[in-house]
Design a protein around this nucleic acid. Structure first.
Lengths: 540, 540
DNA sequence: GTCTTTTCACCTAGGTGAGAACTT
DNA sequence: AAGTTCTCACCTAGGTGAAAAGAC
């Protein structure tokens, strides 16, 4: 967040814009980890997130100054975001600070449900792999669990009695096929100081909610183990001596490495990496993650509330819920409310549905008012730079924002959804239109070579550096039939779109959920954005 | 909204994205115009907004099909926006459909406060100019009222008894100086089928709210008169015969006109338009708006709720409230919840603060639970194309998104905030960083000619068409000292930023408003985006 | 003729991985 | 040497007015 930037003030503005785009943590709740022992504590937001007294070791101090930008820094106060940033909703409560970067909301009572509920969940093993826990140097970095079993490793049932309003809730992971594809390679998620979005984005479809009840949706991340990893050192090969090793794949293609064959911009620059015969699994096996020791001190535990929380069940169920505002950071002093993770550590995202109990003594029912869901296929390793370049390529292939790094001139890419890397039709975090655009924009020439296009991308042509092998490798992945998984995917416009906010489908029939409109009613108002009213009253 | 688009599907995606980015009207309320006669009526949203039975003539039918895209159109259902669109919050109630393009929320009871309250307001004359009503062919199109008097022509006091929660509320128009500058020229706002944002954006600073109470903020637009206008026909000059008329100014510079002096890309191409000696008032006077007859049938009356409604008073007061999601359209069949206006008609925006009464029978108190504010300087004429090219130039000069049309190479522009057209330091709708960026990015060479830079912009160079005179004219405007009005404006980073959502300033002291956190508390949760919780529980 | 619609270049805003520079 | 930080080109997404085309 505090990048000095080449152009000082400008960078500051940018960075604060960014700040705004994401959420800030106005308050913090911690817990003893002991169910039923809600330890509410009010404390501050800006710049002091890290000092939350957690039951475990906290490696940082209060009111830490991050490169001169501590709390009270006037720049922060004045460079508040505006404009589009406004639209960048964040993860705080709407009523508190929807787009709250530097939320000054504090003194928020700890959530009983969290101290008890999540605490319980945390000590249980919902995120433990059903098949086998991930172990470094396994044949497969992350055993691809059978699609069925991996579906929803939701609350093991030992979460105690549940309120029917949450017990009946079921959740479906969106982009499951893509997640699995990543998981097979060993998903990596970039963490940066400023915060980086996840890709794939965690998106779910929700069923079984009480349409009239209020729910809050949130996510958190728990370590998968107590280990720290390191990039399994390219066996028998040092950076700079790339190429020619045949069997070897270059799993951790570092910047410097790609420099060797400058000018070799067409395929096969890296014989060993073309990997036409190497499966992703094998490729990864040749060089893997190594245990570097015990885990670093735990990062400040944080949860990310979906920005639309709380909302009615009807709203949540109306469309896919996307956590595309969630960002990961490795900055222990982060004051933007991002999820703080240790690089080179493995994590399991968790999803929680919380019923907003209207009762006064709702804390007492905290335990029974939430339900948690864990999808094993969403596990990942936090990294500051990609270690497995197959992950890199899959990201490039499936993330619309990385389009600039794709090899094909976009025409071969955008046509058949399953061309090349088995591009998911809806890979992005709610970026529905992206791939759609591609497929329609230049989709008519679908006869282009669907695989191993040796043409270099604009970027590659410009730099004459990037190894094309990476772009050829994808063919070896087991291309999941996304179209099959998502019927109608070939017709982009038919793809149900994800939404970060629980907005309704534009086209639903009239009386589908007239139930879900209490707020406006209570307001003595209506819910609409705009409503009709006796038009016009000439200015007398 | 229904542009056929050159690349079919792609355009569809785009347009739906856009759809998403803005709000949709899930429900509609209408009123008899009779205070105290709440006529609640539930009706549907998508594609049927227009059929709201308004007390006045409605020129359209129910369930109209807009170019094949009527309700039930499957494309709409499937092309729901996602990804970034998600961030595009709209103006519906959070609990209902925050980003609700095709909100299928319906059957929303009419707001009593609106039927009574706004109805009353509508028939009163808060928006009647204190000085003098705008009349076509006046010496000044829009008499520039004294800054003091124009400040807040808020509720005349005859709105009846008010709840102290709203009676104590005061509102301050942001960017007042810019609004006044536009108002002096006769503000014009573009309306398009797809919906166009307002510029300047309506932004207010709110004071006097009960920090713990819930408020909804909304806007609506009322006609300033019952007339339809037409572009006062360039006296003695027809399009195509531009230039050389000395005294004449080209108030409605049409596309064709600017073509004459092709190749003349430096200043003084249009002698009469350089207007070094012409004041804005004079310039406009030479050619003005003419009454074309009585107003067209009233458009469906709509109101735009601030997307963050409802929220606590503390939240609203924390930062500037920006209505940058509000869009104006001339499409009577609009189903995106945009404000529908008649082109070539004049309007007065109104701002309403509504206390969300928790009482069950809140409808009974509707009248006393709202307060309205009217700022005369925000009046405007709805147009499909700018008629007064001074307005065009002022928009270009002050709207960051129109930067591409500026003459200077951005260096002279971005340095002193008051250079050239007296650029407001915070002109944009929450686009704070924009100008900030400019001023910091290339702000070091502040010695550049601050006025009448004859260099053509990138665009001008490319097209060799745009008449530079327009860009020189600005010097004749009374440049308002924005820096003076906004202390510290010269230091971009110090400018209080506007926010579309009531998020808090990043840097406020700890216990400033611990009051404003009822929702989470009620939730049995906390309000934060992220909070601390006992980190880590190794997978058993 | 006047107004409206559509397309387009040019912006803002911000999400990507690459690659170099930096840190330890 | 390995991991982290930072800058950058290249994207997506969408807000501008200009200009041409269309409508009445």
């Amino acid at each position: 967040m505090t990048l000095p930037g080449q152009s000082g003030g400008n960078e500051m503005a940018k960075q604060h814009s960014h700040l705004t785009a994401t959420s800030f943590v106005p308050s913090c709740a911690f817990l003893t980890g002991d169910p039923g022992v809600p330890q509410c504590r009010a404390w501050m937001g800006v710049g002091s997130l890290e000092k939350a007294p957690v039951s475990q070791a906290m490696p940082h101090q209060q009111q830490p100054q991050v490169r001169g930008r501590g709390p009270g820094d006037q720049e922060r106060l004045t460079t508040n975001p505006a404009g589009r940033d406004s639209s960048g909703d964040s993860c705080s409560w709407p009523a508190l600070s929807r787009t709250s970067p530097g939320a000054n909301v504090q003194a928020v009572p700890m959530a009983a449900f969290l101290s008890a509920g999540l605490g319980v969940l945390a000590t249980s093993e919902p995120y433990t792999l059903t098949s086998s826990s991930w172990e470094p140097r396994l044949d497969s970095p992350f055993p691809s669990d059978p699609p069925t079993g991996a579906q929803v490793v939701a609350e093991p049932g030992k979460q105690g009695p549940k309120n029917p309003r949450v017990s009946s809730v079921t959740v479906q992971l969106e982009m499951k096929a893509l997640w699995e594809e990543f998981n097979q390679l060993g998903t990596e998620m970039i963490v940066t100081k400023a915060g980086r979005r996840m890709f794939p984005t965690f998106q779910v479809k929700i069923l079984g909610m009480d349409t009239l009840a209020d729910y809050a949706l949130l996510m958190d991340f728990v370590p998968l183990d107590d280990k720290r990893y390191r990039s399994g050192g390219r066996p028998g090969e040092a950076a700079g001596t790339a190429g020619g090793r045949g069997q070897e794949v270059d799993p951790y293609l570092h910047p410097g490495v790609s420099r060797g064959p400058v000018g070799t911009v067409t395929g096969e620059a890296y014989p060993g990496a073309t990997a036409g015969s190497l499966t992703a699994r094998y490729a990864f096996h040749s060089s893997a993650w190594l245990v570097a020791g015990r885990a670093d001190p735990a990062t400040p535990g944080r949860v990310h509330f979906h920005p639309d929380s709380p909302a009615k069940g009807a709203q949540w169920m109306r469309q896919i819920v996307s956590f595309d505002k969630l960002k990961l950071t490795n900055n222990l002093l982060d004051d933007n409310g991002h999820i703080i993770l240790n690089s080179m550590h493995r994590y399991q995202p968790r999803f929680h549905v919380v019923f907003v109990d209207p009762r006064k003594d709702s804390e007492r029912y905290a335990q029974e008012n939430f339900k948690s869901f864990v999808f094993k296929e969403t596990q990942f390793t936090a990294v500051t730079a990609y270690q497995n370049h197959r992950i890199t390529q899959l990201k490039i292939a499936s993330n619309p924002f990385a389009k600039g790094f794709r090899e094909s001139d976009s025409d071969s890419w955008t046509v058949p959804p399953r061309a090349l890397l088995s591009i998911p039709t809806r890979s992005h975090s709610g970026l529905g239109p992206c791939l759609l655009k591609g497929s329609t924009e230049e989709g008519t020439d679908s006869h282009k070579a669907p695989v191993s296009n040796s043409r270099t991308s604009a970027r590659l042509r410009h730099q004459l550096l990037a190894p094309p092998e990476a772009l050829l490798a994808p063919a070896t992945y087991q291309p999941l039939a996304y179209q099959g998984l998502y019927p109608g995917a070939s017709s982009p416009l038919r793809i149900p779109r994800a939404r970060p906010t629980p907005y309704p489908l534009p086209n639903v029939q009239n009386d589908r959920d007239q139930e879900s409109l209490p707020l406006p009613a209570r307001l003595g108002l209506l819910s609409p954005t705009a409503m009709c009213l006796g038009t016009v009253q000439d200015p007398q």
